[in-house]
Amino acid sequence: MKIALAQISPKLGDIEQNFRMHIDYIQKAKKKNVELLIFPELSLTGYTLKDMVEEIALDPHTDPLLKKLKGLSHEISFVVGFVEEKEKGLFVNSAAFFSQGKITHIHRKIYLPTYGMFEELKFFGQGKNFHTFPTPFGKAGMLICYDFLHISSSYLLFVGGSELIIAISAAPGRGFSDDEGYASARMWELMGEAVSRFFQSFVIYCNRVGFEDGKSFAGGSFIYNPGGQLVAKSPYVDEDFLVKNIDLEEIRRFRKHRPYRRDEKPEITLEAFKRIVAKYED
């Protein structure tokens, strides 16, 4: 299966221009016979939106631009990030899976970072669920940025049967490292490696690049196979269009070798959680 990651730099708050950029990448991907193309978090809008959130929110049922994107998803599937007006006046940070001429699934970001340089809870409502959903390539689950840094998110997708975990991101780089890129890159890669290896899914992480108000988005998108092996990686901070063939048979191969999924006991986890949560105090 041929997959592509568009490590782009969207123009902040300019949907029209970002929409055109998406069309370009979709056409480019089609020419290369890509079957699944991933864009980063808030790819249609940019990240540091603040009060612009409510001005550029889209309704996936009625929006004409999203309708055009649906029309382009017959021969190729793709994931796009945008601000969704879920109900009147309720704005969420969403990832939509476009396939077979429609949006087949929307994930709404649950973990909204609001500390230090981040202020998402001030402007966004929270999603409520982690779902897995069928795709032409197997069962998939989507996560948005900080969702992915909470191991329980991937765990829920794992017990939900995911074979592909797609994490889209607008992660600013932080900290110096002896290697090329930011120190924070290690955090994402470590999670990608651990999740792919122990939850035996492909992990597809697409981050963005570019500056917004001085924040520098770090790039470094990657694909890990279900054995925790790095399959492909984009450069840090540079724009990139990463195209890679992945072998979906590897899911079966790694799960036969180490039956983590077969042996997982979500019902025990659930009972333990109930007991722990029941004892919570203020």
Partner: peptide, 10 residues
């Protein structure tokens, strides 16, 4: 509470 980014539409 009039909060817009510096790089708006840039």
């Amino acid at each position: 509470d009039f909060l817009y980014p510096y790089d708006q539409e840039k």
